[in-house]
Amino acid sequence: MLKTFELALPPFHFQIQTDLPLVVDNLKAMYGHGLLDVINGHTHLAYIDYKLHITHTNGFRRFYKPQARFKCDQYEPFKPLNHSQAFAMLEWGMNWTIASYEMEHVVIHSGVLARGDEAVLFPAPPGSGKSTMTAHLAFNGWRLLSDEMALITPLTQSVVPFVRPICLKNQSIALAKQWFQDAAFSSIAKDTHKGDVVHLAAPVHHSSDLIRPAQIKAIVFPKFVANAQLEIVQLNQAQAMHQLADNAFNYSVLGDKGFNTLIGVVERSACFVITYSDVQDVQAFLEQEVLSQANDIVGEHYA
């Protein structure tokens, strides 16, 4: 049966329709009371930004290797996936939707975490251990603004929260389950193009965490290497720009406004490539060497 939900996920409101129980269960586990049931047409939110659908495909396939398809309104950007991957597909579909239509922010493929109101961007390709780092910091005194997308207000260093579950892959899944035993995990999506994938509900300590912007102070390109010693290489601005632009979704649509935003962020941030095997080393470095001491008072968030 087709169910309708509303999801208040600042700065956006989504409507989600699904006939997949797996998606409903995961939505409830991941978003808690941000998820609102629409029963008998009773809506909750004053408006909707995007209408998303994740449903079974039609035809005989429904009975033989059933698949799920994602649509943003009438548009279907992806090929269908095995229905066990439906929730991961919805999460990626939300990312696709924002990356495709949102031009009010410069959007960068990046984790964003803040200590107080000082933010660090972690733009990185898959396999860099970015999400493991995101998860560790989010549960250890830092505030998660986003695991996948940095929404930067044009021509500022200000990044707006878009708090979403953290997408964990392969080996990091077992690690995270061991680290955060009380946290909520989604069911596992096996054999996706990213390997096995599990989503971890974002820890939200204050309702203001969902809307309070933070100022970008540093950009860290993390590189996980098993058993490696911590190695920190400071990037010059040209190198940092070169790497950051590779991760920017929509600067080309925003034109010189997008270009100048990226330049401004790079010139006002400390930029590093960090090779690490222990996330705590990275945390210590950022807290002691990069961010201002004044922010030590945010210890109240410690888990």
């Binding site: 010059n236 040209a238 190198q239 720009m241 034109g255 270009f259 010139e267």
Partner: peptide, 20 residues
């Protein structure tokens, strides 16, 4: 760039960016 590490060119016609 302020740190004299190079220059960045952005071509608004093609939306390509290059760092030298």
């Amino acid at each position: 760039f302020h740190d004299l590490s190079g220059i960045c060119l952005y071509n608004d016609n093609t939306t390509e960016m290059v760092t030298l």
